[in-house]
Every structure is written in C-alpha cells, then in structure tokens.
Amino acid sequence: MDRFDSKRGPLPQPLPPAGGEPVALRGEECPPPIAHPLPQAGGDRGEGSRPFRENRPTRKARELRLNPTDAERRLWRALSRRQVAGVRFNRQVPVGPYIADFAARSEKLIVEVDGGQHDERAAYDEARTRHIKAQGWRVIRFWNNDVLGNLEGVVATIARALAEKPSPQSPPACGRGSARGKGDSQ
C-alpha cells in the first residue's frame, strides 16, 4: 500500500513508541516525532499543578459549600428550593474577589451570616460590603445566634427585603436623560 492516496493526500503515519525513538517502516527511517499542537493530558498549561487556578474564588467557594457552619446549614434549609417568596438562592457565591454566603441573583440580594470573628473584622466587612454594593447588590447581615435562635424572624426579614424592590436609579441631571440637547447652550 502506498503512503499517498491520490484522493485523500498523504496517509497518516503510525506514532512512534514511547521514548521518542524513530521506528523503521518497511526498511525506511521515520523522522523524529514532531511536537503535538494540542495541550498535554495535564491541562492547558502542561503537566503539574495549576497555580493560576488555585487562588480562584470558585475553589474557595466550593470548599465553603462543603463545610458550612451550623447557622449556614440551618438557613440554607429555609432558603433552598425557592421556599422564600419563590426566589432561588445559591450558597457561597463569588462576587468579585469576595464570596457571599447566600445570593439571590435574580433579586441582587446577598444574605450574610456572621459569627463572632466578624466582630473583630468590622473594617474588612465594611470594605467588602461597599465593594459588593458597588456591583449593584443589596446586602443584609445576621449573626449566627440570630439564625440559630430565631430562624423564623430571620426568614421573615429576608422575605421583607425581597418584597422591597429597590427604586430604579434616577437619570443624571445633565446627561443622556436631560432636557437640553447636545448643541444647546445658555
């Protein structure tokens, strides 16, 4: 059989054995194997660890979902399966560099459950809340002991927050929505 088919062009060559040594085909010497253009089996950057993915918030969020606190576990049972106002909540949702405990994406509402360590990190939590609000989210916070001791009250507060739709932003005074046109001057 020829190594060239007039209709299909050159026929594929067998791969060399592991180790990269050229093999002889019918007495001929094969050229050394060329590098394959596709990524290796270890991923798109070759074999080994993937440091570019290890610090992604999704990995941390996954770890937090697997290890919830008692308060998070109880609140999740009340929020899951669209039990509050028919709204879907997700747990441990990345929002920029931060991870929100619970998020209703359709309503842009984040529910945070804070333990005692958050009392010591108030400045961090304030900066975090400012960043999340700047992304268009509303944030409400509860202490762990509120969730554990008064779950019904916490769920009622979340339901009220879902019912309160934020008013749309008013247009800027002199921008696209202003009464004066671009060429108008006074």
Score class of each variant (00 low, 15 high):
40 Q>I: 04
110 I>H: 13
109 L>Y: 04
86 G>E: 05
104 A>G: 01
113 V>N: 00
33 P>Y: 04
135 Q>F: 04
19 G>W: 03
121 R>C: 06
152 E>V: 06
130 R>F: 01
97 P>G: 08
123 A>E: 15
76 W>C: 10
87 V>Y: 01
132 I>R: 12
124 Y>K: 09
110 I>C: 13
41 A>E: 00
167 S>W: 04
108 K>E: 00
148 L>I: 15
168 P>W: 05
44 D>F: 05
116 G>H: 09
72 E>V: 05
71 A>E: 10
10 P>I: 01
167 S>T: 15
155 V>P: 02
48 G>N: 00
97 P>T: 15
101 D>V: 04
23 V>Y: 00
179 A>Q: 07
22 P>H: 01
151 L>D: 07
72 E>T: 06
122 A>L: 12
146 D>S: 12
19 G>F: 03
32 P>L: 09
141 R>T: 11
166 P>R: 14
129 T>K: 09
55 N>S: 01
78 A>T: 05
66 L>E: 12
1 M>S: 14
98 Y>I: 13
96 G>E: 13
47 E>V: 03
171 P>C: 11
57 P>Q: 09
8 R>G: 02
17 P>S: 04
88 R>A: 13
74 R>E: 12
173 A>V: 12
74 R>F: 03
73 R>T: 08
86 G>F: 02
152 E>Q: 11
152 E>R: 12
100 A>Y: 06
155 V>H: 08
95 V>C: 14
92 Q>N: 10
167 S>R: 15
152 E>A: 14
